[in-house]
């Protein structure tokens, strides 16, 4: 890792988790280092640890406070992170292709707001190779970056109360598929029939942090 890497910091996230922070920006390389740390720690399979949850530039280690103290788990995580394999950060996750019908209710408004026509919006969105920065917001919801800058738009000021599951949305530098019907403020440009999350499936989520995603246009 380069000499400019900021120091890794450790802090209690309450009495049942710690948060490990590698930086303070959204950056694909930094995020890959987060995922490399999480993969490395997950291999240890410590019984006191129930979940290791990566975010953009930090991750949480959720542990059983009846079996290990905050200081104890911090020391163990700190020690384990000394041996994160150097090349692990470059390991690519799975490539997942998501077929999309580009017929979302906001497609024309997105074209107007970005001064493109609908075909150009579809071409830009489906040309991208996206990276799963993190999972969250809802089961199976993947925050995908990086969207072509020509399509960057702020979220709707007032979120829709119901976004149907399978909706493909964009907001800022991100794109995502809504796995379940939820409220949502993203611009909806299409939909997919793929199930992003199914509690009866193993694994339940289609996408995982670190995966790569392509959108394929279908009619």
């Amino acid at each position: 890792m380069s000499g400019k890497t900021p120091p890794v910091t450790f802090a209690p996230l309450g009495d049942s988790a710690i948060m490990v922070t590698l930086g303070g920006v959204i950056d694909r390389e930094l995020n890959r280092r987060v995922h490399a740390c999480v993969r490395h720690l997950a291999r240890s399979a410590w019984p006191e640890v129930s979940d290791i949850v990566p975010a953009y530039s930090s991750f949480a280690v959720h542990y059983d406070p009846l079996r290990v103290t905050s200081a104890g788990i911090t020391d163990r995580v700190r020690a384990a992170l000394r041996d994160v394999p150097r090349d692990d950060a470059e390991t690519e996750g799975s490539l997942v292709t998501i077929p999309v019908r580009y017929d979302g209710p906001d497609l024309e408004a997105v074209a107007d707001a970005t001064r493109k026509n609908v075909e150009e919006v579809i071409a830009l969105h489906s040309a991208g190779s996206y990276h799963v920065y993190m999972m969250g917001f809802a089961p199976g919801f993947a925050y995908l970056g990086d969207l072509d800058p020509a399509l960057h738009l702020p979220r709707h000021a007032t979120p829709r109360t119901r976004v149907p599951s399978g909706s493909v949305g964009i907001a800022g530098a991100q794109t995502a598929v809504y796995p379940v019907e939820t409220p949502g403020g993203w611009h909806l440009i299409g939909r997919t029939d793929l199930l992003l999350f199914d509690a009866q499936r193993d694994p339940p989520a289609l996408l995982h942090s670190g995966d790569r995603v392509k959108f394929e246009r279908i009619e």
């Binding site: 996230l13 948060m19 303070g24 990566p54 530039s57 959720h62």
Partner: peptide, 11 residues
């Protein structure tokens, strides 16, 4: 404002 971070029950 910072990038989204891990959360937990009780946060």
């Amino acid at each position: 404002s910072a990038p989204s971070e891990p959360a937990c029950v009780g946060a």
